[in-house]
Design a protein around this nucleic acid. Structure first.
Lengths: 334, 334
DNA sequence: TTTAATCATGAAAGCGCTTACATTTATTTT
DNA sequence: AAAATAAATGTAAGCGCTTTCATGATTAAA
């Protein structure tokens, strides 16, 4: 591989000049620029990004932490982030935290060791304090799906309360009055917010919240199935079931069907997230669009602007509004 | 951040010695080693991986190319690869090729610019020649889901013919004799191999292959739906439908159901891949397990051994055997 | 003991770039 | 035309490591 030195010799200029035309910052006369470009071309020169990093103290890499690489929730977000950053010549190192505090810390430590210029984190298990501390180090950190007051500008998140509200509101608008709810784990902020939204929709419609019609799950499919069974067991009939995410909705639907319940004729179901497989389900799931992909996009652009000083392309939003996605699992009640 | 220089001063030894204890290769007396370790600890020293890379001419990063970051097919594979390599202190740069020749080349070029020590590629669109050429450069390249004779040792792939055979065999074993087939795009090797397997199963059972009962799709859901419709249009009744992947099976199932066809009572369906959502489908999809995750694991270990000289942990297989996964979408015919 | 062989450590030259500063060359200004 | 200013280019010192080679300290062999 040709080095900058060989290019400079071939072009008959100094190292510095070659570096200048590469980086396009300083002014170089058109004549020399052409000479250099030609030499680069002839030698098939490619800058060594590692040497660039060392000399410039920028790794041009950004770390991305997600809970899991597989699964439906992160795919599009990772995809967007990778796309935006790669088009800017940056590379992204993706790691998985598996919703576990130690694993998240390890992953972040790893990214730090790699000298990432910025970190885009979907961190679920580490504390606010840890993240605050982290943001004081010499990396920029931005948070997805989480809001910490002290670093609000660095946070991109959904209005989960609104989402929860919309989900239940949809059921109410369809005429349902007995509405059960399978919540996410209540130690997670998004789960509690969604539940609040659920309650608001109920009270707005003058329906009293019935604790017996709510169970807490862990956002996984099997807990959706179990949740449905538990709900049925208390013997309080309900015609609609709102779930705090699509996985649990899927589990609940399967469990209900195994009991011989027709969906949506006998039971309407609403999910949350609108993950990829929501439309593969039968019946196709009515759910809440959680615009995580847009958040990824914003986060990536934020990094480009704040860390790599690209000029602003558009205004930033930190708060993203969820929307109802109408499909087939919610039915008008007679 | 402390540098190696500060550590060496604190420990009262030379740079070289510190480097030695870091890398554990050369021999250092226990006394000095302890001194150095202590100094590192006190200073909170972390080696600068970029400087290491520059000096050692190893980036400790491996590039991973997949078709798409989202979608069900790659998730587990990426996950495994990331996990194995990160535990070895290597990092993986993931890029997406979107099954497009130019995009795949761009992505590979990008990884090469990043000075990856190795490339793990799930490349669908570039030619064998291109890959062969690539493998002559100074990166190790390993291929997933593709076999090229000249670099067979570097290839990890499924026995697609066997998979296609097993899928159709399952239908035959359940008593079906009129079996339709929705193929993948026939310019892709895996699609043609699966089709061959299908034909072999047919002929082994003494069933004549009927070209009218086969359509070619593009591995996407909508083409599964369209394929089903086209198949019905030719007016040759069939009781089982084998699809070359799960996406198309899902599309076909939806289309059939919309026509009022009961699955599996009136139509049995078999898929291929066993992607994550296969079990979310209704009815749960009987399909062929395509062990892509295992291939990812093998590929990652191969890189560790051949590029980073880790000792061999187990024997390698290049060819992976698919298996039938029995669920609910295939029914015994009376 | 003397000599050779072995082991532990240090000195210093890179790795391929960026960038502050110095120098040269071209352009204005008076 | 000389002096002042601006623009283009070069020089060289790092960035934080690895690694070769040389040297000094030990140990083993004679």
């Amino acid at each position: 591989m040709a080095t900058i030195y060989e290019v400079s010799k071939a072009a008959g200029v100094s190292l510095a000049t070659v570096s200048r035309v590469m980086n396009g910052n300083a002014r170089v006369s058109d004549r020399t620029r052409d000479k250099v470009l030609k030499a680069m071309d002839e030698l098939g020169y490619k800058p060594n990004s590692i040497a660039q990093s060392l000399a410039s103290n920028r790794s041009n890499s950004v770390g991305l932490l997600v809970s899991a690489l597989h699964g439906s929730f992160f795919g599009n977000m990772m995809s967007t982030v990778e796309d935006v950053l790669r088009n800017a010549g940056k590379h992204v190192i993706i790691t998985a935290g598996h919703s576990d505090e130690q694993q998240e810390k390890d992953a972040i430590e790893f990214l730090l060791d790699r000298r990432c210029d910025a970190l885009i984190l979907h961190a679920e298990a580490v504390s606010d304090e840890y993240l605050l501390e982290l943001s004081k180090r010499d990396v920029e950190v931005v948070l997805i799906n989480r809001r910490i007051e002290e670093m609000a500008e660095h946070c991109f998140y959904t209005d989960n309360e609104l989402g929860g509200y919309l989900a239940t509101k949809a059921a109410i608008d369809a005429g349902h009055t007995s509405i059960a709810y399978i919540s996410g784990p209540l130690f997670k902020q998004d789960a509690t917010e969604r539940l609040q939204g659920h309650k608001r929709a109920l009270s707005e419609a003058g329906i009293k919240f019935n604790p017996q019609l709510m169970v807490e799950g862990g956002f996984h499919e099997d807990e959706g199935a179990q949740g449905y069974l538990d709900l049925v067991a208390v013997n309080q009939p309900f015609t609609a079931l709102v779930c705090a995410n699509d996985e649990m909705a899927s589990g609940a639907m399967t469990a209900a069907r195994e009991q011989g319940v027709l969906i949506p004729e006998q039971l309407s179901v609403v999910g949350f997230d609108d993950v990829l497989f929501a439309r593969y389900l039968y019946p196709k799931l009515t759910t809440i669009d959680n615009p995580i992909q847009k958040m990824g996009n914003e986060a990536a652009h934020w990094v480009l602007e704040h860390v790599y000083k690209q000029k602003k392309t558009s205004a930033h939003t930190n708060l993203f509004a969820p929307k109802l996605v109408v499909r087939d699992s919610l039915m008008e009640i007679k």
